[in-house]
């Protein structure tokens, strides 16, 4: 029984997730207001990062709290190659992805045979180490921060209109969602879930959990590094304390956890809700928000882990079940 592409497309169309993502794709067309588009770019971009984080940390339950290492490496490789050596950001993005994979393999190689928290610890250590290393390295040349020169053109990944960035971010999100979806439907995906569920049991069934974790972490690192490169071209300014900030690692995790760990829709949902909320607060309360915002993120993390470990997606499915039950037994 072979499934044709047409049938596959049809089955995709029935999925509420596809509808949700399609609706997101039309949103940029409603207004050309710069502020609105900028917010959408961030929503898509952070949904993308959170989704990439979610592959290893949500499905595989290997918590990385130093994903910013990949992000920073991507941003610096793309940014420096372009600003100092004039190498096209497209090549920079490819190299970023490659370095993301290398970094993931290095960390994974050292930690994936050990207890899970060694992995978390080395991701944090790696991010911090890279931050100080890059700070040290950049001190000599053009000072701490690097401004990316703006020469419009597709080959420079530089555009005059915000909507181009918005749609590139959207396409990045589509790619990572599609890849995640294909993984979850494959043998690797099932093995990854099993590894996250109970590693010993998975091994006893012939799953080489070490290899699965390495492969998936490499994929996650690859996407995050590429996203970092794009972020650098979008922001046009990079600085070690910015692109290696712990804050980013937390945001990737918070969006996925709030939305629903280990679900495809979760990270998108989390970012769709939290990015506009924080943008709104920032413009409303002003600069004061930044600390309060992260304070609130911290509290949200603790509360969700204690009281709703499945995040909003779990909440939605509970409500859905209740409604279905009500419809089936109206007298109760």
């Amino acid at each position: 029984m072979k499934i044709t592409t047409g049938q596959r497309l049809q089955s995709y169309m029935k999925d509420p997730l596809v509808l949700f993502i399609a609706v997101l794709g039309i949103l940029p067309l409603f207004s050309s207001h710069h502020f609105y588009l900028q917010m959408l770019t961030l929503v898509f971009l952070f949904a993308f990062f959170s989704e990439a984080w979610n592959i290893i940390s949500g499905f595989g339950k290997q918590f990385s709290l130093g994903h910013v290492a990949f992000f920073g490496v991507g941003a610096y490789i793309t940014g420096i190659l372009y600003s100092d050596y004039g190498i096209s950001p497209w090549i920079g993005l490819v190299l970023s992805g490659a370095f993301g994979v290398l970094l993931a393999l290095l960390i994974g190689f050292a930690t994936f045979r050990l207890r899970a928290f060694f992995f978390t610890l080395s991701t944090i250590a790696c991010a911090e180490a890279l931050r100080v290393l890059v700070t040290y390295w950049r001190l000599g040349s053009s000072g701490l921060g690097t401004t990316i020169p703006a020469v419009n053109g597709l080959e420079n990944l530089t555009f005059s209109h915000e909507i181009c960035y918005t749609y590139i971010a959207y396409i990045l999100l589509l790619v990572v969602v599609f890849v995640t979806y294909r993984i979850t439907k494959s043998r690797i995906g099932y093995y990854l879930l099993a590894t996250g569920g109970d590693e010993e049991a998975a091994k006893s069934l012939g799953v080489n959990t070490y290899r699965i974790k390495l492969a998936v972490f490499a994929i996650s690192g690859f996407f995050t590094a590429i996203g970092g490169g794009f972020y650098c071209m979008y922001m046009r300014y990079i600085e070690p304390s910015m692109v290696f900030a712990v804050d980013f690692s937390v945001q990737f995790a918070v969006f996925a956890i709030v939305g629903g760990l280990g679900t495809i829709a979760g990270p998108i949902l989390g970012s769709v809700i939290l990015i506009p909320l924080s943008t709104f607060f920032r413009s409303w309360i002003g600069g004061l928000f930044t600390p309060i915002g992260f304070l609130i993120y911290g509290i949200i993390l603790v509360i969700i882990i204690l009281f709703l470990p499945g995040g909003l997606m779990k909440g939605i499915s509970i409500v859905k079940d209740k409604i279905v039950q009500k419809i089936n037994n109206p007298q109760e």
């Binding site: 099932y190 879930l193 099993a194 569920g197 109970d198 049991a201 091994k203 006893s204």
Partner: peptide, 29 residues
């Protein structure tokens, strides 16, 4: 995992079930 591939299966004293997957998917692994 290599021993499992050779044909050694086992259960655990306290069953180690994948709670994040359906019963069918547990067996599927």
């Amino acid at each position: 995992y290599d021993r499992s591939k050779l044909g050694i299966g086992r259960t655990f004293q306290l069953p180690k079930i994948f709670n994040n997957m359906s019963v069918l998917d547990n067996v599927l692994i």
